[in-house]
Design a protein around this nucleic acid. Structure first.
Lengths: 121, 121
DNA sequence: TTATATACTACGGAAAAACATACCATGAAA
DNA sequence: TTTCATGGTATGTTTTTCCGTAGTATATAA
Protein backbone atom coordinates (compact mmCIF):
# COMPACT_ATOMS: atom_id res chain seq x y z
CA UNK A 1 0.00 0.00 0.00
CA UNK A 2 1.38 3.33 -1.04
CA UNK A 3 0.80 6.48 0.90
CA UNK A 4 1.56 10.05 0.03
CA UNK A 5 4.11 11.47 2.40
CA UNK A 6 4.51 14.95 3.71
CA UNK A 7 7.90 16.60 3.38
CA UNK A 8 9.16 20.12 3.75
CA UNK A 9 8.65 20.49 0.01
CA UNK A 10 5.18 18.98 -0.01
CA UNK A 11 3.71 19.18 3.47
CA UNK A 12 0.18 18.28 4.33
CA UNK A 13 -2.11 21.22 3.79
CA UNK A 14 -5.84 21.61 3.59
CA UNK A 15 -5.43 21.95 -0.14
CA UNK A 16 -3.67 18.66 -0.61
CA UNK A 17 -4.70 16.44 2.27
CA UNK A 18 -8.32 15.52 2.92
CA UNK A 19 -7.52 14.29 6.42
CA UNK A 20 -6.00 17.62 7.30
CA UNK A 21 -9.13 19.30 6.04
CA UNK A 22 -11.36 16.91 7.95
CA UNK A 23 -9.48 17.48 11.16
CA UNK A 24 -9.80 21.22 10.79
CA UNK A 25 -13.54 20.96 10.26
CA UNK A 26 -14.47 18.50 13.00
CA UNK A 27 -11.56 19.04 15.35
CA UNK A 28 -11.95 20.69 18.69
CA UNK A 29 -13.77 19.81 21.81
CA UNK A 30 -17.39 19.86 20.74
CA UNK A 31 -18.00 19.64 17.02
CA UNK A 32 -18.09 15.90 16.67
CA UNK A 33 -20.57 15.68 19.52
CA UNK A 34 -22.76 18.38 18.11
CA UNK A 35 -22.92 16.50 14.84
CA UNK A 36 -23.56 13.33 16.75
CA UNK A 37 -26.60 14.74 18.47
CA UNK A 38 -27.97 15.98 15.18
CA UNK A 39 -27.86 12.54 13.62
CA UNK A 40 -31.21 11.72 15.20
CA UNK A 41 -32.75 14.69 13.51
CA UNK A 42 -33.48 18.35 13.89
CA UNK A 43 -32.75 19.99 17.20
CA UNK A 44 -33.35 23.41 18.65
CA UNK A 45 -30.55 25.44 20.14
CA UNK A 46 -31.72 24.88 23.67
CA UNK A 47 -32.03 21.16 23.15
CA UNK A 48 -28.46 20.93 21.96
CA UNK A 49 -27.36 22.85 24.96
CA UNK A 50 -29.10 20.40 27.23
CA UNK A 51 -27.60 17.47 25.34
CA UNK A 52 -24.10 18.83 25.78
CA UNK A 53 -23.80 19.44 29.47
CA UNK A 54 -20.90 21.74 30.14
CA UNK A 55 -20.89 23.70 26.91
CA UNK A 56 -21.41 27.43 27.14
CA UNK A 57 -23.89 29.27 24.96
CA UNK A 58 -21.07 31.14 23.39
CA UNK A 59 -19.23 27.97 22.49
CA UNK A 60 -22.31 26.30 21.12
CA UNK A 61 -23.15 29.30 18.99
CA UNK A 62 -19.61 29.61 17.67
CA UNK A 63 -19.28 25.95 16.83
CA UNK A 64 -22.65 25.81 15.14
CA UNK A 65 -21.75 28.79 13.01
CA UNK A 66 -18.52 27.19 11.92
CA UNK A 67 -20.25 23.94 11.14
CA UNK A 68 -22.72 25.92 9.10
CA UNK A 69 -19.94 27.74 7.27
CA UNK A 70 -18.34 24.41 6.45
CA UNK A 71 -21.58 23.05 5.12
CA UNK A 72 -22.27 20.35 7.68
CA UNK A 73 -25.19 22.00 9.40
CA UNK A 74 -28.28 23.82 8.28
CA UNK A 75 -29.74 26.62 10.38
CA UNK A 76 -33.40 27.51 10.20
CA UNK A 77 -34.70 30.59 11.95
CA UNK A 78 -38.40 30.98 12.70
CA UNK A 79 -39.85 34.47 12.82
CA UNK A 80 -41.22 34.11 16.32
CA UNK A 81 -40.84 35.55 19.73
CA UNK A 82 -39.35 34.07 21.78
CA UNK A 83 -36.94 32.96 19.08
CA UNK A 84 -36.89 29.50 17.62
CA UNK A 85 -33.91 28.20 15.70
CA UNK A 86 -33.58 24.70 14.41
CA UNK A 87 -30.40 22.93 13.43
CA UNK A 88 -30.07 19.88 11.25
CA UNK A 89 -27.41 18.03 9.30
CA UNK A 90 -26.77 18.52 5.63
CA UNK A 91 -25.88 15.46 3.56
CA UNK A 92 -22.22 16.29 4.08
CA UNK A 93 -22.70 16.37 7.82
CA UNK A 94 -24.64 13.16 7.74
CA UNK A 95 -21.83 11.57 5.77
CA UNK A 96 -19.79 11.69 8.96
CA UNK A 97 -21.63 8.69 10.32
CA UNK A 98 -19.12 6.14 9.03
CA UNK A 99 -16.33 8.16 10.59
CA UNK A 100 -17.95 8.19 14.00
CA UNK A 101 -18.74 4.52 13.65
CA UNK A 102 -15.12 3.61 12.91
CA UNK A 103 -13.97 5.91 15.64
CA UNK A 104 -16.28 4.25 18.12
CA UNK A 105 -15.17 0.80 17.05
CA UNK A 106 -11.59 1.79 17.50
CA UNK A 107 -12.29 3.57 20.76
CA UNK A 108 -13.41 0.26 22.23
CA UNK A 109 -9.95 -1.11 21.60
CA UNK A 110 -8.05 1.62 23.38
CA UNK A 111 -7.20 0.97 26.96
CA UNK A 112 -8.46 3.52 29.39
CA UNK A 113 -5.50 5.33 30.83
CA UNK A 114 -5.61 5.94 34.57
CA UNK A 115 -7.10 9.37 34.63
CA UNK A 116 -9.56 9.72 37.50
CA UNK A 117 -10.50 13.25 36.56
CA UNK A 118 -11.91 12.43 33.13
CA UNK A 119 -14.15 15.36 32.40
CA UNK A 120 -17.61 14.86 31.01
CA UNK A 121 -18.43 15.82 27.48
CA UNK B 1 -31.63 3.90 14.70
CA UNK B 2 -31.21 4.45 18.39
CA UNK B 3 -28.31 6.36 19.86
CA UNK B 4 -27.25 6.85 23.40
CA UNK B 5 -27.61 10.45 24.40
CA UNK B 6 -25.62 12.51 26.80
CA UNK B 7 -27.43 14.40 29.51
CA UNK B 8 -26.40 16.14 32.68
CA UNK B 9 -27.17 12.91 34.48
CA UNK B 10 -25.29 10.70 32.04
CA UNK B 11 -22.83 12.80 30.10
CA UNK B 12 -20.25 11.41 27.70
CA UNK B 13 -17.12 10.43 29.54
CA UNK B 14 -14.10 8.40 28.66
CA UNK B 15 -15.55 5.63 30.74
CA UNK B 16 -18.81 5.43 28.90
CA UNK B 17 -18.16 6.76 25.40
CA UNK B 18 -15.61 5.17 23.08
CA UNK B 19 -15.63 8.20 20.79
CA UNK B 20 -14.74 10.45 23.67
CA UNK B 21 -11.89 8.15 24.51
CA UNK B 22 -10.74 7.98 20.91
CA UNK B 23 -10.74 11.74 20.60
CA UNK B 24 -8.65 12.10 23.73
CA UNK B 25 -6.10 9.64 22.43
CA UNK B 26 -5.69 10.84 18.86
CA UNK B 27 -6.82 14.42 19.29
CA UNK B 28 -4.45 17.28 19.02
CA UNK B 29 -2.46 18.72 16.23
CA UNK B 30 -0.01 15.94 15.42
CA UNK B 31 -0.95 12.52 16.69
CA UNK B 32 -3.01 11.35 13.77
CA UNK B 33 -0.22 12.34 11.42
CA UNK B 34 2.41 10.61 13.47
CA UNK B 35 0.36 7.45 13.36
CA UNK B 36 -0.17 7.97 9.68
CA UNK B 37 3.53 8.08 8.96
CA UNK B 38 4.09 4.94 10.96
CA UNK B 39 1.61 2.94 8.91
CA UNK B 40 4.29 2.32 6.31
CA UNK B 41 6.48 0.77 8.95
CA UNK B 42 9.13 1.51 11.50
CA UNK B 43 10.63 4.98 11.60
CA UNK B 44 13.42 6.58 13.52
CA UNK B 45 12.88 9.72 15.53
CA UNK B 46 14.74 11.88 13.04
CA UNK B 47 12.78 10.47 10.14
CA UNK B 48 9.50 11.34 11.76
CA UNK B 49 10.76 14.81 12.40
CA UNK B 50 11.57 15.20 8.74
CA UNK B 51 8.20 13.81 7.74
CA UNK B 52 6.39 16.32 9.92
CA UNK B 53 7.80 19.65 8.86
CA UNK B 54 7.02 22.22 11.49
CA UNK B 55 6.91 20.00 14.52
CA UNK B 56 9.38 20.73 17.28
CA UNK B 57 11.52 18.06 18.85
CA UNK B 58 9.80 18.64 22.13
CA UNK B 59 6.37 18.19 20.61
CA UNK B 60 7.35 15.07 18.75
CA UNK B 61 8.86 13.56 21.87
CA UNK B 62 5.85 14.40 23.99
CA UNK B 63 3.33 13.09 21.48
CA UNK B 64 5.24 9.88 20.92
CA UNK B 65 5.42 9.27 24.64
CA UNK B 66 1.70 9.75 24.98
CA UNK B 67 1.00 7.47 22.05
CA UNK B 68 3.23 4.92 23.71
CA UNK B 69 1.43 5.30 27.02
CA UNK B 70 -1.87 4.74 25.24
CA UNK B 71 -0.57 1.64 23.58
CA UNK B 72 -0.58 2.78 19.96
CA UNK B 73 3.14 3.02 19.48
CA UNK B 74 6.10 0.87 20.37
CA UNK B 75 9.47 2.41 21.18
CA UNK B 76 12.66 0.53 20.68
CA UNK B 77 15.93 1.96 21.91
CA UNK B 78 19.23 0.70 20.58
CA UNK B 79 22.25 0.81 22.85
CA UNK B 80 24.34 2.89 20.48
CA UNK B 81 26.01 6.21 20.21
CA UNK B 82 24.80 8.31 18.60
CA UNK B 83 21.43 7.13 19.84
CA UNK B 84 19.02 5.19 17.70
CA UNK B 85 15.37 4.91 18.57
CA UNK B 86 12.78 3.27 16.41
CA UNK B 87 9.05 3.76 16.54
CA UNK B 88 6.41 1.48 15.17
CA UNK B 89 2.69 0.86 15.51
CA UNK B 90 1.17 -1.68 17.80
CA UNK B 91 -1.87 -3.61 16.57
CA UNK B 92 -4.05 -1.05 18.30
CA UNK B 93 -2.32 1.79 16.50
CA UNK B 94 -2.57 -0.03 13.22
CA UNK B 95 -6.26 -0.50 13.81
CA UNK B 96 -6.63 3.21 13.19
CA UNK B 97 -6.31 2.68 9.46
CA UNK B 98 -10.05 2.37 8.83
CA UNK B 99 -10.58 5.59 10.76
CA UNK B 100 -8.11 7.52 8.67
CA UNK B 101 -9.55 5.98 5.55
CA UNK B 102 -13.08 7.08 6.41
CA UNK B 103 -11.81 10.44 7.48
CA UNK B 104 -10.02 10.89 4.17
CA UNK B 105 -13.07 9.81 2.22
CA UNK B 106 -15.17 12.29 4.09
CA UNK B 107 -12.54 15.00 3.84
CA UNK B 108 -12.91 14.90 0.08
CA UNK B 109 -16.54 15.88 0.47
CA UNK B 110 -15.91 18.95 2.57
CA UNK B 111 -15.64 22.19 0.70
CA UNK B 112 -12.47 24.10 1.27
CA UNK B 113 -13.29 27.22 3.17
CA UNK B 114 -11.63 30.38 1.95
CA UNK B 115 -8.63 30.48 4.22
CA UNK B 116 -5.58 31.71 2.34
CA UNK B 117 -3.29 31.20 5.32
CA UNK B 118 -3.83 27.47 5.66
CA UNK B 119 -0.80 26.34 7.60
CA UNK B 120 1.11 23.30 6.52
CA UNK B 121 1.03 20.14 8.57
C1' DT C 1 -46.63 47.08 33.62
C1' DT C 2 -43.86 43.45 34.71
C1' DA C 3 -42.12 39.03 34.11
C1' DT C 4 -40.88 35.21 30.87
C1' DA C 5 -38.86 32.49 27.34
C1' DT C 6 -35.28 31.87 23.73
C1' DA C 7 -31.34 32.55 21.13
C1' DC C 8 -28.13 34.95 21.06
C1' DT C 9 -23.64 38.84 21.74
C1' DA C 10 -19.74 41.23 24.35
C1' DC C 11 -15.96 41.50 27.28
C1' DG C 12 -12.32 39.95 30.01
C1' DG C 13 -9.72 36.34 31.74
C1' DA C 14 -8.07 31.52 32.69
C1' DA C 15 -6.33 27.41 31.08
C1' DA C 16 -4.38 24.53 27.74
C1' DA C 17 -1.65 23.71 23.77
C1' DA C 18 2.10 24.65 21.17
C1' DC C 19 6.45 26.98 20.34
C1' DA C 20 11.46 29.01 20.60
C1' DT C 21 15.68 28.58 22.24
C1' DA C 22 19.24 26.66 24.57
C1' DC C 23 21.37 22.89 26.55
C1' DC C 24 22.99 17.67 27.53
C1' DA C 25 25.27 13.02 26.90
C1' DT C 26 28.52 10.10 24.51
C1' DG C 27 31.19 7.23 21.46
C1' DA C 28 33.28 7.50 17.03
C1' DA C 29 35.68 9.77 13.52
C1' DA C 30 38.71 13.39 11.96
C1' DT D 1 41.26 17.15 21.10
C1' DT D 2 37.78 18.86 18.56
C1' DT D 3 33.82 17.93 15.99
C1' DC D 4 29.74 15.41 14.80
C1' DA D 5 25.48 12.83 14.99
C1' DT D 6 21.24 11.60 17.44
C1' DG D 7 17.62 11.80 20.52
C1' DG D 8 16.52 13.82 23.72
C1' DT D 9 15.50 17.80 28.38
C1' DA D 10 14.73 22.32 30.57
C1' DT D 11 12.85 26.73 30.88
C1' DG D 12 10.13 30.29 29.63
C1' DT D 13 6.90 32.53 26.27
C1' DT D 14 3.40 32.94 22.90
C1' DT D 15 -0.82 31.42 20.78
C1' DT D 16 -5.06 29.20 20.80
C1' DT D 17 -8.94 27.54 23.02
C1' DC D 18 -12.30 27.76 26.15
C1' DC D 19 -14.99 29.70 30.05
C1' DG D 20 -17.74 32.99 33.40
C1' DT D 21 -20.54 36.54 33.71
C1' DA D 22 -23.37 39.89 32.15
C1' DG D 23 -25.87 41.81 28.99
C1' DT D 24 -29.71 42.30 24.49
C1' DA D 25 -34.14 41.92 21.90
C1' DT D 26 -39.16 41.30 21.82
C1' DA D 27 -43.82 39.25 21.44
C1' DT D 28 -46.68 37.14 24.72
C1' DA D 29 -48.82 36.09 29.10
C1' DA D 30 -49.99 37.46 33.64
Amino acid sequence: MKHPVATADAPFTEDTCPVTRAVRVIGGKWKLFIVYHLIDGTRRFGELQRLLPGITQQMLTAQLRELEADGLVRRKVYAQVPPKVEYSLTPVGRALEPVTRELATWGEKVSQRAKPDGKAV
